[in-house]
């Protein structure tokens, strides 16, 4: 019970921190919406793609996943602030394990990511130019999208923590997140369909966990005659397995708060 309360206290602390730093809150919601408007309108009107009939709607699930990606980057970076201010050191002097301390941080990151992704999805649903098809019905579609959003945030929050506790400088962390991992969004099916890609891109797409989240959300929100690129069963099997594994690894680092 006391462990549960400690985690709850840690989660509440990080949530409060995000609410207080409003610029972070706004930018991680406004930037994806801006990208949706500009990229969506630019491609659908300017390029008129042939194999995507409604590009803005197609793009929305990818933007939601991107929101989760930004959110987890921000949240994981707070690990460095905690380390540098000495807060981490003080928390680790409590009777609780390092895993529990990181669990608190990672759960908070997950919740923040889910909330931000849902805001972006909610705003997108209200935009007249975005027409969700709900091929499995609205309620089932919302449930599927929500499940995919939760799982992708668990995965990304775990991944962020995994990297933050292994990379000693925040500059290095941002470098890895933005230069190494951000490109994974490009071959996740977020911006362009995975169908008809050259083999090397299709392979990268298939080993990319983000592809499965984007696919599940396409099935829930967009309409596809063939039931998605991977299919719902495959999407959720891969997402669940990867999310749990990475989350567990992410909270498992033996910490040196003075590293």
């Amino acid at each position: 019970m006391s462990a549960f309360d400690a985690v709850a206290a840690l989660v509440a602390r990080d949530l409060r921190g995000v609410v207080r730093s409003r610029s972070q809150l706004y930018s991680s919601i406004l930037f994806p919406l801006m990208l949706l408007a500009i990229l969506g309108a630019g491609v659908s009107d300017g390029l008129d793609p042939k194999n995507v009939d409604d590009y803005v709607t197609f793009l929305t699930p990818g933007i939601v996943v991107m929101t989760a990606f930004f959110s987890s980057t921000f949240s994981s970076a707070s690990y460095y602030a905690d380390r540098d201010t000495g807060v981490l050191r003080a928390l680790l002097a409590s009777p609780h394990s390092p895993r529990l301390v990181l669990l608190g941080k990672t759960l908070a990151a997950t919740l923040i990511g889910v909330a931000q992704a849902l805001v972006v999805l909610g705003v997108a649903a209200l935009v007249p130019a975005i027409n969700f098809q709900w091929q499995h019905g609205v309620l089932a579609g919302i449930a599927l999208a929500l499940a995919a959003i939760v799982l992708v945030n668990v995965f990304l929050a775990g991944l962020g923590q995994l990297l933050a506790s292994r990379i000693s400088s925040m500059q290095g962390f941002h470098l890895v997140m933005n230069i190494v991992l951000f490109p994974f969004l490009f071959f996740s099916g977020a911006f362009s369909p995975l169908d008809d890609l050259p083999l090397w891109l299709a392979t990268l797409g298939a080993i990319n966990p983000l592809s499965y989240a984007v696919d599940a959300m396409h099935i829930a929100l967009y309409h596809r005659a063939d039931g998605g690129f991977f299919g719902l069963a495959m999407d959720f099997a891969v997402l669940t397995a990867v999310a749990i594994a990475v989350f567990w690894l992410g909270t498992g680092r033996r910490l040196h708060s003075d590293q």
Partner: peptide, 28 residues
């Protein structure tokens, strides 16, 4: 066991009351 580190170990955006509440919950 209580410890006071050589360097201050406070979260700059938390208040004093919040700092102590977090400690109370971490220590059950």
């Amino acid at each position: 066991i209580g410890i006071v580190f050589q360097e201050p170990s406070l979260d700059p955006v938390m208040t004093g009351a919040e700092t102590l509440r977090l400690q109370a919950r971490m220590f059950g």
